[in-house]
Design a protein around this nucleic acid. Structure first.
Length: 479
RNA sequence: CGGGGCGUAGCGCAGCCUGGUUAGCGCGCCUGCUUCGGGAGCAGGAGGUCGGAGGUUCAAAUCCUCUCGCCCCGACCA
């Protein structure tokens, strides 16, 4: 058992912080609420980025970069938007030794600047659609921060598109939600509940918000990505107009969608255990580590290392570059070496000691289950990728089974409250309430409506208002 | 922003109430020897303006005032 990590059952949030610390994903920055993403954490982010970026480009989007500073007046152009973001904005009032004529907001999101630019770029229906994404940092001043889940500055990706018709914009909104879901499930191993947000949880300025909701191993929900149908709200505010085929002037329809470094928190809280980080192979920057081990250093240098390096090279060409590491931390004792690799979440360890060398094999140890199995040298190229794939599938299946086990359907508020008096999890219930009802529910139980899942388009009697024909919603306490 | 707690070595803490040698302990770190297939043992060593400022006093980590910061619990949030 790890002695530098508090067990999950004892103190979940301390466990979360300990896992991040021992895996060296991040550290606290000198500025309150900010974090330093350490090399291991950043490599993970780069891996996540790579998968998303590829998918965005596959679906016709291009990358661009818009400025960090936004004129304060821009934010004020969309009433709901400013109301939603003003409390958490950091404002630059001085620069060059003088007070600025107009304060500049450090972007909490970029709808406004991008809207401003789109109005310049769009004149005709021929200029549409515009499909732009940007990778950047944003700042939302948080009262209470937690590494990766909620920090004042975070890294993310924000897609901003403009379309000629409402239908096309809605199609885009849902398409990107699907892209998120696909990568989150198939690469990050996070079972996703994709659906529409309730009125109270909607993005400020959006007509409709859709989200990907994941369940963490403490039963709480985490919003892993959002996709917004902005209607013509921002087009009106920023005058994004175009002449349509009929020669009439019309407002464009826009969307925006984002996912952030919060995903790293989601990965940690979905797969990790009391020994530390566990990473799904497809997202793990290092997928396997070969550990040559022997008290006899000359045997290591002459026999084990060459064998380890050769296997690593063969696997690298098969998997992806630099995805198989050879552990050369010989200054550490064996136990330390095993633990160091274990706690960093590397999916597969391949141990190569004198015993294995004599038999012409590696002893493979799965990070997720601890299961050991021998792999002979000539089968490495076949069995390692297969094993990694198996781990990927198993992690997803395990997370999905956990979510299902912790999801219950309730029919009235009494049952509802009962669930959240206990361990929580996801609660399915028909719901027809609005902002006020959501507020009451949150006050009494701590739970909020996460989404109306798209896979479950059922109707029934609202558990709270008793109205008929209510949509099925999922409630949970959320991060 | 309200309620509670805490700032002493890289980390975790003791000492403070009742002021008085050179401010301790554990982990970590450094050096050496022995170990080495599952977080080693022994020996030696480095490391502190006790969060900051002011005050009381012959004397302050300790008492007083102010201040800054952090953590936890609530309200707000990707």
């Amino acid at each position: 058992m790890a002695r530098n990590i508090v067990p999950r059952k004892e103190d979940y949030s301390q466990w979360y912080l300990d896992v991040i610390k021992t895996a060296e994903l991040a550290d606290y920055a000198p500025v309150r609420g900010c974090m330093v993403i350490r090399p291991n954490g950043y490599a993970l982010w780069e891996s996540i980025q790579g998968h998303f970026d590829e998918a965005f480009k596959e679906t016709g989007h291009v990358n661009a970069y818009f400025p960090l500073l936004i004129p304060q007046s821009f934010l004020e152009k969309e009433a709901e938007h400013v109301e939603g973001f003003a409390p958490e904005c950091a404002v630059v009032t001085h620069a060059g030794g003088e007070e600025l004529e107009e304060p500049l907001i450090i972007r909490p999101t970029s709808e406004t600047v991008i809207g401003h630019m789109y109005s310049k770029w769009v004149q005709s229906w021929r200029d549409l659609p515009i499909l732009i994404n940007q990778w950047c940092n944003v700042m939302r001043w948080e009262k209470r921060s937690r590494l990766f889940l909620r920090t004042s500055e975070f890294l993310w990706q924000e897609g901003h598109t403009a379309h000629a018709t409402s239908e096309e914009a809605m199609e885009e909104t849902l398409k990107m939600l699907g892209v998120y879901r696909d990568i989150m499930e198939n690469v990050l191993g996070l079972p996703i509940l994709a659906g529409e947000k309730s009125e109270g949880e909607r993005f400020p300025g959006a007509d409709n918000t859709y989200s990907c909701e994941a369940m963490m191993s403490d039963g709480k929900a985490l919003q892993a990505g959002t996709s917004h149908f902005l209607g013509q709200n921002f087009a009106r505010a920023f005058d994004i107009t175009f002449q349509n085929r009929e020669g009439e002037l019309d407002y464009a329809w826009t969307t925006s969608w984002g996912s952030s470094t919060r995903l790293i928190g989601a990965i940690v809280m979905t797969h990790s255990d009391d020994d530390g980080l566990v990473l799904p192979p497809r997202v793990a920057p290092v997928k396997a580590v070969i550990i040559p081990i022997s008290p006899d250093q000359s045997f290591v240098d002459e026999k084990l290392l060459p064998r380890a390096r050769e296997a690593a090279e063969r696997l690298d060409t098969l998997l992806s570059k630099r995805s198989v590491r050879v552990d050369t931390d010989f200054h550490l004792r064996p136990g330390d070496r095993f633990f160091a690799n274990l706690q960093k979440g590397i999916p597969l360890r391949l141990e190569l000691g004198e015993k294995e060398f004599g038999k012409g094999l590696f002893q493979a140890v799965r990070r997720d289950t601890g299961e050991r199995l021998d792999i002979s040298w000539d089968q490495v190229e076949e069995r390692v990728p297969a094993l990694l794939e198996e781990i990927q599938q198993d992690l997803f299946a395990k997370a999905l089974a956990f979510r299902e086990k912790n999801t219950v359907r309730v029919g009235d508020f009494g049952e509802f409250k009962e669930v959240f008096r206990g361990r929580g999890g996801f609660v399915e219930a028909f719901f027809a309430g609005g902002r006020e009802e959501e507020k009451t529910i949150k006050e009494e139980t701590g739970a909020t409506a996460r989404c109306f899942p798209m896979d479950k388009e059922e109707r029934g009697t609202c558990f709270f208002t008793g109205r008929p024909g209510a949509r099925l919603a999922v409630f949970a306490r959320a991060y």
